[in-house]
Simulated assay, not measured.
Amino acid sequence: MALATEHLIDIDRKTGEYVQGWPRIKQSIECILTTRIGVRLMRLWWGSKFVDMQDKPGNEETLMTGMMAAISAINTYEPEFKVSRVSIDAFDSTGDITITVEGVDLIDAQLKRTKTTI
């Protein structure tokens, strides 16, 4: 299998314009983490169990399960990014989860980090 030398091109979910590189990867990570498995009609297998940790107690077991679900889903469905670290920064009573994902952009071979609230 040949290694890719350029980033994939996608459509920005907010503007409808083309997006490529790190902005596309960040969008993909957020989409993976916010999509429940079984809700996409043509891809029932796609998504993650990370969002299932909302409305659960914020104990250590729930946090570890959520982090493992995030790592597994991102590494499975995002071909241009390899996760090296995930941390849950905030888990509040409203159900909002702030997560930081760190890893390597496999095309540029650079360490990247994104922080998002779900």
Rank of each mutant, 00 (worst) to 15 (best):
I88W: 07
I74P: 08
E78F: 07
K26H: 03
L3R: 10
S93A: 13
Q54P: 03
F81D: 00
N75Y: 08
A73Y: 00
T5Q: 09
V51C: 15
R113V: 15
Q54D: 04
K14Y: 10
T15I: 00
G58Y: 07
E6V: 09
S72R: 13
R24K: 14
L41M: 09
G66W: 02
I107P: 05
R43Q: 12
G16Y: 06
I11R: 01
R113D: 09
K49R: 14
I9C: 08
W45D: 13
E30C: 09
G16D: 04
T116H: 11
A73P: 03
W22L: 05
M53W: 04
Y18W: 00
P79W: 05
S87D: 15
E61L: 14
D105R: 05
D108W: 02
Q110V: 07
I29Q: 01
G95W: 06
Q20C: 08
F81C: 05
I97S: 01
C31E: 12
L106W: 04
I118Y: 14
L3G: 06
E80Y: 05
I37K: 15
I25H: 00
Q110N: 04
R43N: 09
M67H: 07
W22C: 05
T116Q: 11
A70M: 07
E17P: 00
D52T: 12
I37Q: 13
N75W: 05
G38T: 06
T117F: 03
Q27H: 01
A2G: 11
I88G: 08
V104R: 10
D55M: 13
L3K: 10
A90I: 00
T5Y: 11
D12Y: 03
Q27Y: 00
L33Y: 09
D12G: 03
R85F: 07
W46Y: 13
V51L: 15
G21M: 01
K115Q: 14
P57G: 05
I88S: 04
S72N: 15
I99F: 00
G66V: 03
I37Y: 09
P23K: 02
G47T: 00
E17K: 08
W22A: 03
S48P: 02
T117R: 12
G66Y: 01
V39G: 02
I97W: 04
E78Y: 06
A73V: 03
V51Y: 14
T114H: 12
T62H: 02
C31W: 08
R113T: 15
V19T: 14
Q20D: 08
T76P: 06
I97R: 01
T98V: 09
K49N: 14
D96T: 02
I99N: 02
E17Q: 08
I32Q: 01
I37V: 15
I74W: 08
A90E: 15
E30T: 06
H7K: 01
V83Y: 10
D10F: 00
D12I: 02
A109H: 10
S72Q: 14
P57F: 05
E80D: 07
R43E: 11
D108A: 13
E80W: 03
Q27I: 01
T65C: 01
T94A: 08
R43F: 03
A69H: 11
D89F: 04
T100I: 09
